[in-house]
Computed example of a mutant assay.
Amino acid sequence: MSDQDVRMMLREMATGEAVQVTSSMSSIGKIAELAVIAEQFGYQYSDVRRGNGYVMSLVADPGPQARARASRNWAQYPEALDGGALPPFMPEAFQLLKACITFDLTSGVSDKQKLIIASLGITVMAVSVVAGLHADTTSFVVAGVVWVVLMSLLPLLNVAGRRYKAKFAAQLSAAGFTPVTDQSGRLRYLPPGGQLPGHGNPFAGGEGTQQ
């Protein structure tokens, strides 16, 4: 997380509009750190998607506690927009936001879709092996062996992925998050007090500006 990313995000948030945080070099941990800071200034994590890196959506939190926290922090850290001090980092909030972001990323594609995408990737790689070895008999044998080995690993990777996803779901449930299905049919986890789209839910936020 760079200081520039933080300042750009805060400037966008000062408009009160929905914001998208985009960085080609972001990791899940880095965007979760940005989400923690956003919460301190009255915004709430809404969603994430893969684009050029990760693209995280943030929307203003209308809750009275969030409004009070934002007013307090804007008053206490008036130079935050210009490189000044920020509120203390909150490790517990970071862990929950990281879990929520990770879960959302893993929920964006079904197990069947993941298998199809992985199968196509393996097939393309096998074809590349053949092309790289001048398409002779040896290249076909090598490519065939690679294809069979990697395809046989897909079910194991799928099981590992489900366990990975379940770990974060359990972490969120233990923290009081509620499983819901959004308008696209995707399973999401709402924080305590969150509501479905159209009732003050952060998942209903619109598109913001790009950074």
Rank of each mutant, 00 (worst) to 15 (best):
F94W: 12
A93V: 14
S173K: 15
L153H: 01
F89W: 13
I101C: 15
C100D: 13
A85R: 03
G176W: 09
L157F: 08
L97V: 07
H134I: 06
V141K: 09
Q113T: 11
S119G: 10
Y164L: 06
W74S: 04
I117L: 11
G185H: 05
K114V: 11
T102A: 09
V148M: 11
K98T: 03
L156V: 01
D82F: 15
A135L: 14
I101F: 15
L115W: 00
D182C: 07
P78Q: 08
R186G: 01
K112N: 08
A126N: 03
I122W: 00
I122P: 02
L187N: 13
T123E: 03
R188W: 04
R188F: 02
S184K: 13
K167D: 13
E92A: 14
G185R: 07
L133A: 10
R162G: 08
V146W: 07
L154F: 00
V109G: 01
C100Y: 01
A135K: 06
L133I: 10
P191A: 13
K114Q: 11
S128C: 08
R186I: 04
I122T: 04
S152C: 04
N158Y: 07
D136H: 05
V180A: 13
D182R: 12
K112H: 09
Q113N: 13
V149S: 01
L172Q: 10
V124C: 13
T138Y: 01
V149K: 01
D82S: 12
Q113F: 06
A175E: 04
L187V: 10
L187G: 07
A85K: 04
L156E: 00
G108T: 10
A80Q: 04
Q171I: 06
Y77C: 00
P155K: 02
L187W: 09
T138Q: 05
L105W: 07
D82K: 11
D111K: 10
E79T: 08
V142F: 15
Y164S: 09
T137V: 15
G185M: 05
D104Q: 14
S110H: 05
Y164G: 02
S184Y: 10
P78Y: 11
S128N: 08
R163P: 01
V146N: 05
T178R: 14
A85E: 14
V127D: 07
L172V: 02
S139T: 12
F140D: 07
E79G: 02
S184A: 11
L96C: 12
L150E: 04
L81N: 00
N158V: 15
G161Q: 03
Q171P: 05
M151H: 08
A175V: 00
L157H: 07
